[in-house]
């Protein structure tokens, strides 16, 4: 129906040229207004206010901005051991989670791509944890890690391995949180890789199979190079997601033991909402924002280069 109508109407559709050139500013503004209003009020506005606050000694319990601090909050943060240690914990968590979350997701997606039946089952098994709230994940894993009777410790004990005190030992707490996070979020990367694999034309495999290429050769010379773009995307999304970690530590260790797992966001939370120093907390937020921006910028440069290369 529409196609025949279109064919008949097309010539007359060129008529209001003058109107087209002027554009439709008013209706466009009407459509944009609701989004832009809420966007300005609750994203851009607070962003600018936060930037402003970071130069003041603003307190949560006093109205107004309070006295001007210049760069005081920033220099204090950069000289604070707590700032650097919480930033390091966040980076340590990112280092512990990113490689396994990418390599394992890729490996499992490569395996799943070869399996013809029951893909829904694998998708369910790997992806189901991802949609659970962090609190649910935390409750389940705190129980799995319970000293003395946790399933992991008991199972390892049966094969003769003495388990560490997962969440209680300062040097094991972060790896334990990383394992939980691996279980929780692997499915997201898995799904991205599965989608990337489906974009690869099947005849490439068929052609190389005829030429006698082994499955391993196919993976190395066809699959991995063609997954380059997906891998860049997975990497950057993963690094940014890991840098934003808060929930797991907040619920499972409260940043402990002995502040060994306090993340940068929890440091913001503690400075702003426990010590009421929201000016200082804003400065720390801005520094964190710079780290995230730097990661995004690196990603952007890599993508640009990849697009030029192809």
């Amino acid at each position: 129906m529409t196609t025949t109508e279109t064919a008949v109407r097309t010539p007359s559709a060129e008529e209001p040229v003058a109107e087209k050139k002027r554009g439709y500013g008013l209706p466009a503004a009407g459509f944009l207004a609701p989004f832009l209003l809420v966007y300005l009020l609750f994203i851009i506005g607070p962003g600018l206010y936060g930037l402003l606050m970071s130069f003041f000694d603003t307190s949560l319990v006093k109205p107004g901005l309070s006295s001007f601090a210049g760069l005081g909050n920033y220099t204090e943060a950069l000289q604070s051991g707590d700032f650097w240690s919480s930033l390091w914990h966040t980076l340590w968590f990112t280092i512990l989670t990113t490689p396994p979350l990418i390599v394992l997701a890729l490996a499992l997606a490569l395996l799943a791509d070869r399996v013809k039946h029951g893909r829904w089952f694998f998708r369910l098994a790997f992806f189901a944890p991802y949609i659970l709230p962090s609190a649910v994940v935390a409750l389940i894993w705190m129980f799995l890690y319970t000293p003395g009777l946790g399933l992991i410790e008991v199972s390892l004990g049966k094969i003769g391995i003495t388990a560490p005190n997962w969440l209680g030992d300062p040097s094991w707490a972060m790896p334990s949180l990383a394992i939980t996070t691996l279980w929780w979020t692997l499915g997201f990367n898995f799904v991205l890789y599965l989608a990337g694999l489906q974009e690869i034309p099947r005849d490439l495999y068929e052609a190389s199979a005829i030429d006698g290429a082994s499955p391993w050769q196919q993976i190395r010379s066809i699959t991995l190079p063609l997954l380059g773009r997906t891998t860049t995307l997975v990497c950057v999304l993963q690094v940014i997601a890991s840098l934003k970690v808060f929930d797991q530590m907040y619920i499972m260790t409260s940043g402990g033991p002995d502040f060994a797992t306090r993340s940068i966001l929890q440091y913001v939370y503690d400075s702003g909402f426990t010590n009421f120093r929201i000016g200082y907390a804003s400065a720390v937020s801005m520094l964190f924002f710079l780290v995230v921006l730097a990661v995004s910028a690196v990603w952007f440069t890599i993508v640009r280069r990849q697009e030029k290369g192809v």
């Binding site: 944009l32 609750f42 962003g47 206010y49 808060f246 939370y269 921006l293």
Partner: peptide, 24 residues
């Protein structure tokens, strides 16, 4: 211009805004 202004929002992690948003 409007499109890029909106797109810039992708760059801002919501966690960065919690302090001023709370005050708001």
């Amino acid at each position: 211009v409007v499109f890029w202004f909106v797109l810039a929002g992708i760059m801002i992690p919501s966690q960065v805004l919690i302090v001023p948003q709370f005050r708001e």
